[in-house]
Nucleic acid binder design. Structure first.
Lengths: 216, 216
DNA sequence: GTCTATATGAGGATAGAC
DNA sequence: GTCTATCCTCATATAGAC
């Protein structure tokens, strides 16, 4: 309490850190373990060890295990969709190039360990945590699919893409990336799941799948 | 023990059934609960109640909880891939039609509650059960992807499909169905996940994505 | 603010009657 | 072959010292 957090000197007691860092460290350790073992199979003690604190310390920042879990899952998903959304709002140009850019973004984000962990955790635990299920359904999945749908619809209107059911077609476009990420998370790295190969191949596949019919 | 199982009379004690039916009933109840809540969060008592037996009865047929789980997950996945494989072995005709037929099969199978439950369970628990992970990797996922890859490669050779990385392209073809199934399992039925719309739309998308370039 | 030590309870597993 | 009743482990959650 006497220490100014912005100028923490080196000779503080070893265990003392600024309390603003603790929750993040605990959640980061939690995400990794929750994703690997699931909510029920993850012991608070393992999280505490991974975060370098004791079990009891967790209860200083989180009401209970479930509270930690809900906070963790939300923490690492929140910013991503908004980042893409901001990108879309500022974009000027053709929808074909836009789709290309957005798929690159999605591809990058889906590679990160955090995102893979979140997607896996969401699927595994949505049945047990209505709060998490509803939040991600509304703020991540439907929002994300909606953004993509609007891109496709706009492209159809300008004639860059062929007429189609945009809402359904979006699943043909983005689901391979998500499922590939899940496959790697589930089975580890396999030559069949090489994400570089998938990305190039799928981009070409999408380009042809959406291409407007040639006249003549 | 005195009763001949093939001619079980109606006035037996109410709780007595032929033992060959019990394991299947327990596994069916188990699959549903494991898929909804996960392995750790599913209580043996819940499975027992759902199957209409007592906890102790489960231990007559399965060594322990994990043994029941492993047997259950394997039970409902085993036959499916083999069925499609047999279908392929007997097929004569064009690869474009074959791909169409196989996607219909995949689509049907992925709709069933059992398959949805298996896919979800696999993703959720593969990290905790190496045995399950390895079995499905080799006998379901890689085998299934391999079969599809051979179809695409054969179609490229006959000129029905454009030249491409068959192994990667297969993911563009089948992953939307799998991910759609997972989405419904995770979030319930949503208009965005309407599987009928996806099927028709995706089939058209695949047809165009694979079409050989027109000459001229 | 963090730790060590402990209370509490839930659920997997078993013994023994029928 | 199935049930009821009990045991026992293990992990969450808390109390209290520093």
């Amino acid at each position: 309490m006497s220490a100014d957090p912005t100028s923490l000197s080196a000779d503080e007691p070893r265990w003392q850190r600024r309390s603003e860092e603790r929750p993040g460290e605990i959640m980061r350790a939690g995400l990794e373990l929750f994703a690997r073992k699931g909510f029920a199979a993850t012991r608070l003690e393992d999280i505490a060890d991974a975060a370098g604190v004791s079990k009891a310390t967790i209860y200083l920042y989180f009401k209970n295990k479930q509270d930690l879990f809900v906070a963790t899952v939300r923490e690492f998903a929140e910013a991503r969709v908004d980042r893409i959304e901001a990108f879309l709002d500022n974009y000027e140009g053709g929808y074909s190039e836009l789709l290309d850019l957005v798929l690159r973004q999605l591809y990058e984000v889906v590679q990160t360990p955090e995102l893979r962990a979140i997607v896996k955790t969401l699927i595994a635990e949505a049945g047990n945590f209505e709060e998490i299920r509803n939040y991600h359904r509304d703020h991540v999945v439907l929002k994300g699919l909606g953004m993509m749908t609007r891109i496709v619809e706009a492209g159809i209107k300008t004639g860059e893409f062929r007429p189609c059911d945009a809402s359904a077609t979006v699943q043909s476009i983005v689901f391979p990336f998500l499922m590939n990420s899940l496959g790697r998370q589930t089975f580890g790295e396999l030559p069949q799941f090489d994400p570089e190969a998938l990305f190039a191949s799928h981009l070409e596949f999408v380009k042809r799948g959406l291409a407007a019919d040639r006249e003549s």
